[in-house]
Deep mutational scan, measured.
Amino acid sequence: MQIFVKTLTGKTITLEVEPSDTIENVKAKIQDKEGIPPDQQRLIFAGKQLEDGRTLSDYNIQKESTSHLVLR
C-alpha cells in the first residue's frame, strides 16, 4: 500500500509499505529515499509519535494515510 510522509519543508514522500511493516522499516525506507538517518527521524501520526518496534497496523495507518516527519 502507499502512504505519504510530509516533511517540515512541505515536501511529500510517497512510500510503498505493508501494514505489517514496523516503524523502523518505514524509517529505513525514508533513509533510502531521502538520506536521513533513522535516528534523526521522528514520525508523527494523528498527533502521536510512532515508536520503532510497533507496526503501521498498530497505529491504524491505512493506505494513503499521511504522517509527518520531524527531524531531531
Rank of each mutant, 00 (worst) to 15 (best):
M1G: 03
M1A: 03
Q2A: 08
Q2T: 14
Q2G: 04
I3N: 00
F4L: 10
F4R: 08
F4E: 06
V5W: 02
V5A: 02
V5L: 06
V5S: 00
V5E: 00
K6I: 14
K6H: 15
L8Q: 14
L8S: 14
T9R: 10
T9E: 11
G10V: 02
G10C: 08
K11R: 11
K11S: 08
T12H: 07
T12C: 12
T12F: 12
I13A: 01
I13Q: 01
T14H: 07
T14F: 08
L15C: 02
L15M: 04
L15A: 01
E16H: 11
V17F: 03
E18C: 11
E18R: 14
P19A: 09
P19T: 08
S20A: 08
S20G: 11
D21L: 05
D21W: 11
D21P: 00
T22C: 04
I23L: 04
I23Q: 01
E24D: 07
E24Y: 14
N25A: 14
N25R: 14
K27D: 00
K27N: 01
A28N: 12
A28E: 09
A28I: 13
A28P: 00
K29D: 02
I30C: 01
I30P: 00
I30H: 00
I30Q: 00
I30K: 00
Q31G: 06
D32T: 10
E34A: 11
E34W: 15
E34F: 09
G35N: 07
P37N: 07
P37R: 09
D39W: 13
Q40G: 06
Q40I: 10
Q40L: 11
Q40R: 11
Q41F: 14
Q41H: 04
Q41P: 01
R42E: 13
R42V: 15
R42M: 15
R42I: 15
L43A: 00
I44M: 13
I44K: 04
I44D: 06
A46P: 01
A46D: 14
G47S: 04
G47C: 07
G47Q: 04
K48F: 09
K48A: 09
K48G: 05
Q49D: 14
Q49C: 13
L50W: 03
L50A: 03
E51G: 03
E51R: 08
D52Y: 04
G53W: 13
G53C: 08
G53P: 05
G53D: 11
G53T: 10
R54E: 05
T55R: 10
L56K: 00
L56G: 00
S57C: 05
S57A: 13
S57H: 09
S57I: 08
D58H: 10
D58N: 05
D58T: 04
Y59G: 01
Y59K: 01
N60E: 07
N60D: 10
N60R: 06
N60Y: 06
I61E: 01
I61Y: 03
Q62S: 14
E64R: 04
E64A: 10
S65N: 09
S65P: 13
S65L: 08
T66D: 09
T66Q: 10
T66V: 13
T66L: 10
T66W: 08
S67E: 13
S67L: 15
S67W: 15
S67C: 15
S67P: 15
H68P: 08
H68V: 14
H68A: 08
V70R: 06
V70W: 12
L71D: 05
R72P: 09
R72A: 13
